[in-house]
């Protein structure tokens, strides 16, 4: 199967600064890949390389089977692009602007476009200059989706959108995926991509530090654990919990209404299953095991000293 997007050791240098360093990843048709990373991690550079706006310094990008730097306009008609810093002409109406983009992209089905405009709650008769940031973002989304491109490249697509519209956007992404379109989107926080994306690629300072299925990332993400006990842990109990994966962060005594008790706070990465029999033996008053915190997992990746998984590919 041909990938919608295949990056191989893709590198972009500006002078002595390396904006993107040997990044490899693939996006198969009908899949959604989210790239996350802090500002300056190389997300936008990656997208500009995919669109053929800038030329790679090394490696290659293959987009729908073609080299985007050399490919003609035919390739870009098959791509929908939403730039991270969306600048639209403010002097004309939204409808005129969509008409214009329709003329320079793939054939647009007028009914499908009106459907998008309605679903996102956009008033196309207003001049672009009078629209709020969120409404401009909606225009940007409509122009990216309206010609039903085979590949959608969306840089921070949900920025400025209210939660209801964000949900509608996620629905659009799911429908695109169901229709066999590939989606490559970026965000600086994982919460925006974890619901829509199958795969997550984490970029930091131009390196791909992790590329994994969202489910795998969730499995290994840390969960907070809180135990309320009648007695302090013995050394043996603490060692057993540690072997079962619980990293104990704090242990303190507290006075409750029913006498003294001990609160143990800790963190477990991956499945907490091994902990449960041990905890049951402790006969705790209360146990809280929270949902995995993907944000925490990703922040951990940002902080790592080097490119741990650079060059690892998925898909």
């Amino acid at each position: 199967m041909q990938h919608a997007l295949e990056l191989r050791d893709l590198t972009k240098r500006y002078g002595t600064r390396t904006a993107l360093d040997t990044v490899s990843l693939t996006v198969p048709p009908g899949s959604v890949v989210g790239v996350i990373g802090p500002n300056g991690a190389g997300k936008t550079t990656t997208m500009r390389l995919i669109l053929g706006l800038i030329r790679p310094s090394g490696g290659s990008a293959t987009v729908l089977g073609a080299d985007p730097w050399r490919a003609g306009p035919g390739l870009r008609r098959r791509i929908g692009y939403l730039p991270g810093e969306l600048r639209l002409d403010s002097r004309i109406t939204g409808a005129d602007l969509l008409e214009h983009f329709g003329r320079i992209s793939g054939p647009v089905d007028g009914r499908f476009r009106s459907g998008l405009v309605d679903r996102l709650g956009l008033d196309p008769s207003r001049r672009v200059g009078t629209l709020s940031k969120g409404n401009k973002q909606k225009l940007g989304l409509v122009q990216a989706f309206m010609h039903r491109p085979e590949l959608l490249v969306l840089d921070e697509p949900t920025s400025g959108l209210d939660p209801l519209v964000q949900r509608e956007f996620l629905a659009l992404v799911r429908e695109a995926k169901a229709g066999g379109q590939a989606v490559f989107l970026s965000s600086h926080v994982i919460s925006e991509v974890q619901h829509g994306a199958d795969h997550v690629a984490v970029l930091r300072e131009g390196h791909l530090v992790r590329s994994a299925r969202v489910a795998d990332l969730r499995d290994e993400a840390p969960r907070s654990v809180r135990l309320e006990l009648d007695h302090a842990l013995t050394e043996a109990q603490a060692r057993a919990l540690d072997r079962a994966g619980l990293e104990i962060l704090a242990m303190e005594e507290a006075q409750g209404p029913a006498g003294g008790r001990v609160v143990v706070e800790g963190r477990v990465s991956g499945s907490p299953a091994a902990l449960i029999p041990l905890v049951a033996e402790l006969a705790p008053r209360d146990v809280v095991i929270e949902e995995p915190d993907l944000e925490q997992a990703v922040l951990g990746l940002y902080g790592r000293p080097g490119p741990v998984h650079a060059g690892v590919r998925h898909g």
């Binding site: 500009r48 969306l86 320079i104």
Partner: peptide, 17 residues
């Protein structure tokens, strides 16, 4: 400079055009 050219060039046009 405004960023609008980037979006135009991401569509079905050539740079000479």
């Amino acid at each position: 400079e405004s960023g609008a050219l980037e979006l135009t060039l991401a569509h079905g046009v050539t740079r000479p055009q």
